[in-house]
Amino acid sequence: MSAVTAGRSSRGVVDLVFRARELSIVAALAVLVAVTAGVNGNFLSGQGMKDIFLNASILVLLAVGQSVVVITRNIDLSAGSVVGLVAFTTGDFLAADHGRGVVFAVVLGVAIGALCGLVNGLLVSFGRVPALVVTLGTLYVIQGLDHLIAHGRQINAVDLPPALLALGNGTVLGVPYLPVIAVVVMLAVGYYLRSYASGRDFYAIGSSPEAAGLAGIPVRRRVMGAYLFSGALAGLAGVLWLSRFGTVVADAANGWELQVVSAVVVGGVAITGGVGTVYGAALGALLLTTITSALVVLKVNPFWQQAITGALLLLAISVDRLLALRVARVLRRRNARHGS
């Protein structure tokens, strides 16, 4: 067997393992929904399912952007603070001038988010500062800027254009706009990462930045692009947050950065980079949102919601490690057989 064929076979093993991981999340979702619906039949009501998908949509967008960063063996802890900054700043502009509509809000929000992502990307890729340090720092800087702009004020739904509020609560053919937007973005990004050479570069960088550089991949530019994209999606999520809830204060989405990372890791994107899909990350976001909704329906103490999320994160990281070791052993055996 040729080296190329062996490489494709090895990649097939990895894809099979992590496809099984995504199927296990679907199974867990099905069990969770069935058990909760058995205890409280209202959980599967039309409004109940609509609320779950609406609440998951923003987290899915953030998880898709975070996935691209994590695949490159980096992390973005500033996503939640970007959502808060964009939601308040965009709402402030719209409240001051009702003539500005949805398109203006989306463009402004994405631009602000992209600028935050650009700062992160420049510091990580060209400044070579550890991603954890950079994004933790920008998290606090952005939060401080948000509080400075807000200055104790809040944005109310009555101050916003009706078209923007319709985006967050309206439907098309009975399906809310927000889940449709999240699914379209997820499918587009997933297709790009798998079908384009530049998309596959992110996986190569996550697997081995040094080897990717030797292969001629522009590592710094790709990493900066990952942060730019993550910031832009966080900006879009901020606009959707504003349209969904209407009332926004300075600490909107506070603490969501940990939920985003949890969704990505639970969804099978390896924290060590190079492995995972945006589809798995989206499923992880949906699982975490469904768990939260189920615990509320079952009237479980809010403390356990956070505890379960933390336990899932630890379990996912442990499973990733065990799977990585298992896959490595399988690949070594295959390579040994092909080499003999």
Rank of each mutant, 00 (worst) to 15 (best):
V183H: 08
I155L: 11
P176G: 08
D159H: 06
L173H: 08
G174E: 09
V175D: 05
G190H: 00
P176R: 08
G174M: 05
V158I: 13
I155Y: 13
V175I: 15
V158R: 14
V180P: 07
L193I: 01
G170P: 05
P176Q: 12
G174K: 06
G174I: 03
T171N: 12
P161E: 11
L187A: 15
P176S: 11
G168E: 01
P161M: 08
L167N: 04
M186C: 15
N169I: 02
V189R: 01
T171R: 08
A163L: 13
L173E: 08
L173S: 14
I181T: 05
V172R: 14
L164H: 04
P162A: 11
V185L: 11
T171W: 00
P176K: 02
L164R: 04
G190N: 05
V189Y: 00
A188C: 12
V185T: 03
I155T: 09
G174C: 02
G190I: 02
V185G: 03
G170D: 06
I155V: 15
V183P: 01
P176E: 10
V184R: 10
I181G: 12
L187P: 09
A188E: 10
G168I: 12
L193T: 02
Y191H: 09
L193H: 01
V184W: 14
A182L: 02
P176C: 13
A163F: 11
Y191N: 07
L178K: 04
V189N: 00
A182H: 04
L178P: 07
Y191P: 01
T171V: 09
A188Q: 14
I155G: 06
V183R: 08
V183C: 09
M186A: 15
L164T: 06
A188V: 12
D159K: 07
P179T: 10
P162Y: 06
P179S: 13
L173W: 11
G174P: 07
L167D: 03
M186R: 05
V175E: 07
V185D: 04
P179M: 09
A182C: 07
N156K: 15
G168W: 01
I155W: 04
N156L: 14
V180K: 03
V158Q: 14
V172W: 15
Y191D: 06
A166L: 13
A157P: 08
V183Q: 07
L178D: 03
I181A: 10
V158Y: 11
D159C: 04
L178M: 11
V184E: 15
V172I: 14
P179W: 11
V189S: 01
L173T: 03
N169S: 12
P162M: 02
D159L: 12
Y177F: 14
T171Y: 00
L164I: 12
G174S: 02
M186N: 11
V184S: 13
L187I: 15
Y191L: 07
P162C: 05
A182W: 00
Y191K: 03
A166G: 12
Y177I: 14
T171E: 15
P162N: 03
Y191C: 06
A163W: 02
L193R: 04
G190A: 03
Y177C: 05
Y177H: 13
Y177V: 12
L160G: 00
L173Q: 10
P179F: 05
Y192T: 03
L164E: 03
P179Q: 09
Y192L: 02
I181P: 01
Y191S: 01
V172N: 05
V180S: 00
V189D: 04
A188D: 06
